Amino acid sequence: MNFQEYKEKSITEKVNYFLKNLSISNREASYYVKWDKIKKQSKEYTNELKKLNQLLGQKNVEEKAEKLFIEDPSVLEAIPILIALRLRTQKVINVMELDGNYNKSFYSINFSNIDLEKIDVYMKFIRDSGLFEFFKNSPINDLRDYIYGVEVGMDTNARKNRSGKVMKDFIQKNIESVCKRLGFKYEFDIKSSQLKKKWNYSINSDKKGREFNAAILDEKNNELYVIVNDYYGGGGTKPSTVTDGFIELDRSIKKSKDEATFIWITDGLGWNDGVEAFTIAFKKIDYVFNMEMVENDFIYELLK
């Protein structure tokens, strides 16, 4: 179906077409692990980990560890990464303790600026974290190999941003192609306040600092298009919460001083569980496309 045919369909037919052509994933194979990043970060504590290796398999591990820490306090800086904790901005770990009656107390420990006067605190933290037991009964021979596994696990926290980037790159390449074919100006990742400075357009948004993934200007016809793209795989956020936010954004844009057209590009199988909410969005927002529709030149046909 092309855009002209799509335009003539009813809301129900448009929703059905949209849902039928959802992408089953927005994850490339490279989404799962960024090996270059893992390799780089695994080298950060190479020397410290090499020294900590001498604690592996030791029966009197605490005695040997305390001696090692006093001889070379910098070794302690590698302790947080062994429990999958990266101290980039927060240099101090705050720890809660509960006694037998569940009364709580707190202590802080600094692994950035080592204070050997508090060696007992470091020892207690490492003991309570289970690391000493791990050292004593470790099935591995080199902590540097272990860190690779830790880094892979920690890297999963970045997956959400990577999947968002895949869709963002896909949309940008298509918009860039469309605008070159039409001779239109375009900008990526631009805030409503920047549109005023860039093209002298004053448009409202639903919240302060709203950033549009793309903005397109047809100078000849004095028409502005602003685009937000996202991917809804389902999960914790309710479909109605997502759609309500974009309905409000569209409403705000339509009340702007300068006329602008809002385009919402969204995808993901999560929308199969939000048909009712999504149908309402289709009734309120003029242009809602998915990746398949973008690939099939719906934006080009709309703009030309």
Results as ranks from 00 to 15, higher is better:
216 I>M: 08
254 K>E: 14
187 E>R: 12
294 V>A: 03
133 E>Q: 09
111 F>G: 01
106 F>E: 14
19 L>K: 03
110 N>K: 02
89 T>S: 14
198 K>D: 08
133 E>Y: 06
48 E>Q: 13
166 V>K: 12
233 G>W: 09
261 T>D: 11
24 I>V: 14
110 N>D: 14
126 I>S: 02
48 E>D: 07
286 D>K: 14
97 E>F: 04
84 A>G: 13
240 S>Y: 07
158 A>W: 08
185 K>Q: 13
66 E>T: 13
262 F>G: 02
303 L>R: 01
87 L>C: 01
304 K>L: 09
8 E>Y: 12
164 G>W: 01
19 L>H: 00
239 P>D: 07
196 K>V: 10
236 G>A: 10
275 V>G: 05
191 K>S: 14
109 I>A: 07
204 N>W: 03
242 V>I: 13
203 I>V: 06
154 M>L: 15
129 S>N: 06
256 S>W: 04
61 V>A: 00
209 G>Q: 00
236 G>R: 09
9 K>G: 10
1 M>G: 11
39 K>S: 15
240 S>D: 14
22 L>Q: 05
163 S>N: 13
63 E>F: 02
139 P>A: 11
290 N>F: 06
280 I>S: 09
206 D>M: 05
239 P>H: 02
198 K>M: 08
192 S>D: 11
297 D>F: 08
40 K>Q: 13
185 K>Y: 11
127 R>P: 03
30 S>M: 12
262 F>C: 08
223 E>M: 12
68 L>A: 02
31 Y>Q: 12
176 E>K: 11
224 L>N: 03
116 L>W: 02
138 S>F: 04
289 F>R: 07
60 N>F: 01
90 Q>I: 08
293 M>L: 06
199 W>T: 01
183 G>F: 03
159 R>Q: 14
56 L>A: 06
188 F>I: 05
299 I>P: 08
60 N>Y: 01
125 F>T: 01
49 L>A: 07
120 D>K: 10
48 E>C: 06
149 G>A: 14
165 K>Y: 15
59 K>W: 04
228 V>C: 13
232 Y>I: 00
26 N>D: 15
212 F>R: 01
44 E>T: 15
97 E>M: 14
291 M>K: 05
223 E>P: 07
56 L>S: 03
184 F>W: 01
277 A>R: 02
45 Y>W: 07
125 F>G: 04
107 Y>A: 08
242 V>D: 05
157 N>M: 12
171 I>Y: 03
153 G>W: 10
29 A>G: 08
15 V>M: 06
79 I>F: 01
26 N>M: 15
222 N>C: 10
2 N>M: 07
102 Y>Q: 15
96 M>C: 09
281 A>S: 09
196 K>M: 10
110 N>H: 05
103 N>K: 15
57 G>D: 07
132 F>Y: 11
295 E>H: 06
44 E>M: 12
215 A>Q: 04
